[in-house]
Structures are given as structure tokens and as C-alpha cells.
Design a protein around this nucleic acid. Structure first.
Lengths: 154, 154
DNA sequence: CCTGATGGTCAGCAGTGCTGACGATCAGCT
DNA sequence: AGCTGATCGTCAGCACTGCTGACCATCAGG
């Protein structure tokens, strides 16, 4: 990882780069959030839950890009820690609205600060411009339409 | 993912962006490589194996950033497909040197072309400049030193 | 020959994310 | 009202990945 043959063979491969950069960020994130007793995915749940009016689990799952069955375990964990509260929706009793508890809001505030600081340090090796551009570039790639399996009939 | 609340809450989070961009690339990669009967990780193994003189499994694992126990299964699969060959090293009979078979070299050539085309399409939404910069930026982040757990004694 | 270290292998475990099924609920229709 | 199909949350089960720990064969040094 220090300029040897790896660079020649792999360092220009997008897959390798994205995977390992993501891995490294995940490590930093886990370290930064450990004091708050949550991990990055759980923090993301807290964030989407405060972003608007109370969401159902399915809505939250959609915003996070995870499966609804995954969201069950996520909310389970957060509820167990006393950070969120499930409540049966009165408009539609199939749904659970999930809301932050006061403890959850405290946790969110602190954890978000820690995450921001972590990201700042993670991006420190870059020029400020390049850091901004990285975010924009990734956003562009994500918002591009999915290309489905190539089909001759297409 | 089309400009709704997700953008506000998550779209600027590095973790979310990296994870989902990586996921999307992985899908494209799987699709592009399917005709060759290998996946992205296996292609990466083939690449490092041709990059130099025959490598031992441990050396290959090091270059790929995977565990040696992971490499066992990887080489198993490739050997099963007839793309690589294990051979006991004569210098050090604890080691396996792993080499591409002719079929492996054919596969590598075709799969690399497919991967390059796939990456080109993946990066198509970006200006050429931004695509280049993305690679450089990711390389910079990866080559930055790991920051170990913060320690008061440090 | 011992001893300690190294490389490959395997079993087992943990984390993640999926599918498929189920019960409860809703909406539309009759 | 009652029936039907869809929706939401839940759970069990599976697959994939990547790790740890143990084992054996082998090497290097005494």
C-alpha cells in the first residue's frame, strides 16, 4: 500500500479503491462513534428520523437504502438503548412510527459532531477543494440512473 | 434518491456515499464479469498474479488486502475453474506459488477489457476531468497513514 | 534434533443483507 | 357486513464475506 507493485496492478481499479476507502472510513467511523454506543448505520437511522415528521419503519428504510427486514433489527437495537420509540401509527395501524427519545436526540447531537470531526480528519490529506469535489462526484454517481441488465430488446 | 429528503439528510455523508457508490459499482462489475465466470475479487487475484513473477498465496493476499484464509478459498475457486495452478515452491516448500494457466490468461484479458468498459460507463456521468480526479483522490486517501486508536499516552 | 517462526488449511463464529412466510391491518368491491 | 388483494412489521432461514484459532508441514538457527 506504499507504492509497490500493488499500485501498478490495483491502485487504478475503481473497485479496489472504493472498497478499501470505504472500509477505512468505516473503521474511523466505528472508532469515533464508539463512545456514543452506536455505529454508523444506527447514527444514519437517527439522522433520517429527525429529518422530518415521524417516519414509518418502511419509509426510514427507503431513505437509508436498506431492506425493511434490516430496519427491524436496527430499530430493535436503538429502542433497546432507549434512543428511539416505536409507536403504532393511529392513521394506519399497520405502521410503526419511530421517534427519537430525548436520550436519542442527545446521542444524535453528540454523535453527529463526532462524525463531522471524523470526516474532517479523514479528508485531511486532501486539498479542501478536492474534498468538496469528492462529495459532489460521489453524489453525481449515485444519482445517475441505474443501468439494468443489457437487453437486446432494449 | 431523486432530490427528496434523503439528499438533505444523507447525501453529504461520506459513509453513505462511499458505501452506496461502491455497492452500485459492485453490481455493474458482477454483471460485466458474469460472462467470464468470475467475480471482481477473482479478477483482482488474476491481476496481481500476472503483475509479477509467481507469487505465494500470502504475498497475493497481501497485495489484495485480504486475509490469507480468504485467499485459500479464492485460489480454490480459481483452480477449480482451471484458471490458476497451485505449485509447491521449490525454494520454500511451505509456500504455494500460484500461476495463471493459459485459460486463466485468456480469461484475464477478456475480463479486463470488460471491466475497463464497465468502469468507463460507470464514470460516464462525470466530466473526464472529474473522473481522473476521483481516482487520484481515492488513491490519496488510501495511501494516507492509518490513524490508530487515539491514546492519551500518545 | 530441538525450538520458534512461517505458510497453507480448515472449522467455527460474527456481521450483513437477502428471501419467504406469517399475522395484522387497510382499501376497494360487492 | 363480508371478501379479496395489497401493505407493513416480524421472524426464521440462508448466503456471502471475512475474521480467529487451531493444526500440520516446513524452514532457520542453535
Amino acid at each position: 500500500m506504499t507504492g509497490d507493485a500493488t499500485s501498478e496492478a490495483l491502485a487504478s481499479r475503481l473497485g479496489y479503491l472504493l472498497k478499501h476507502v470505504q472500509l477505512r472510513l468505516a473503521e474511523q467511523s466505528a472508532r469515533a462513534l464508539a463512545p456514543f454506543g452506536i455505529d454508523g448505520r444506527e447514527l444514519a437511522v437517527l439522522v433520517v428520523l429527525t429529518a422530518q415528521n415521524p417516519l414509518s419503519q418502511l419509509e426510514a428504510a427507503g431513505r437509508l437504502g436498506v431492506d425493511r427486514t434490516t430496519m427491524v433489527a436496527l430499530v430493535d437495537a436503538l429502542e433497546h438503548k432507549g434512543l428511539v420509540e416505536r409507536r403504532r401509527s393511529e392513521q394506519d395501524r399497520r405502521k410503526n412510527t419511530v421517534q427519537l427519545t430525548p436520550a436519542g436526540q442527545d446521542c444524535l447531537r453528540g454523535a453527529e459532531r463526532a462524525r463531522e470531526e471524523m470526516e474532517r480528519q479523514f479528508l485531511a490529506p486532501l486539498a479542501a477543494r478536492d474534498a468538496d469535489r469528492l462529495v459532489l462526484t460521489l453524489q453525481t454517481l449515485l444519482s445517475a440512473p441505474d443501468r439494468p441488465a443489457p437487453s437486446n430488446a432494449g
